[in-house]
């Protein structure tokens, strides 16, 4: 899209995109630090991740303030309007992702007080996939790359499948040795948080599609088997 007649309008749109991109980068960093803290049983790092979440929250506030200002002063239309609304929505998705990363770090602080358990590696494997997806969707946002966004969107099913497998693994592990139930429960919540990060990344892909095309991504959202159903069927 060519430039606006009013140049400061372009500068504001760029500024808005930059804040959201910065939030995306921070959410990625928070997630990877949380995983490192979990893998290495590093409580200092975990504590830094917990504290670092406030910075993402601040940026979300900044996006909110800035979008309201732009809506009031520029009265944006069409593609500009969609870009501004998308920035607002994506920033709140990223803020949630930051919360989940901080929660993973918080739980790893508890795990560090307990003897190590095997399924940690399963959680980390799930998280690696979600990390890839998060990185791709943030890149897709910065590059306005719809193909990449659609690929992210299609990978949500993969996350759900791995999560379902991990859920079973954790159940089995806890049944075999009830002393691992505390650690296992925390890992279960961590896995859920990470799976939710994948969902939010998928949401970002959907918002980006709307921003670029003005239409929702075609077709049904990919969905793995629901855990609740899995659970009942397994009984």
């Amino acid at each position: 899209m060519s430039e606006h007649t009013v140049k400061s309008y372009d500068e504001e749109l760029t500024h808005l995109t930059n804040i959201v991109a910065r939030m995306g980068g921070m959410a990625e960093a928070q997630l990877s630090a949380a995983l490192m803290a979990l893998g290495r049983r590093d409580s200092d790092l975990a504590a830094r991740v917990v504290a670092g979440d406030a910075r993402i929250d601040e940026l979300e506030q900044e996006v909110q303030h800035f979008t309201v200002r732009m809506l009031a002063l520029r009265q944006p239309m069409a593609g500009d309007l969609r870009a501004i609304v998308a920035a607002l929505k994506i920033s709140s998705e990223l803020e949630r992702i930051g919360d989940y990363a901080a929660n993973v770090a918080k739980r790893s602080l508890v795990l560090n007080q307990l003897p190590p358990v095997r399924p940690v590696s399963g959680v980390i494997n799930l998280a690696k996939l979600v990390q890839d997806i998060l990185r791709d969707v943030v890149d897709a946002y910065v590059e306005r790359d719809l193909d990449k966004a659609i690929r992210v969107w299609n990978r949500d099913e993969e996350v759900d499948d791995i999560y379902t497998g991990l859920f079973r693994e954790l159940l089995t592990y806890m049944m075999e040795d009830p002393r691992t139930i505390t650690a296992g429960s925390h890992l279960m919540f961590m896995a859920k948080n990470i799976e939710r990060i994948g969902d939010h990344a998928t949401n970002i892909a959907e918002v980006l599609h709307f921003q670029v095309k003005g239409t929702p991504i075609a077709g049904e959202r990919p969905k793995g088997q629901s855990i609740a159903i899995e659970d009942e069927a397994g009984e």
């Binding site: 060519s2 239309m77 069409a78 969609r82």
Partner: peptide
């Protein structure tokens, strides 16, 4: 027209690009 114009000229005009 104002949320999702199909033509780039329309988009350019209503968003203040020309």
């Amino acid at each position: 027209i104002f949320t999702n114009p199909q033509h780039t000229l329309t988009q350019g005009y209503i968003t203040g690009r020309f």
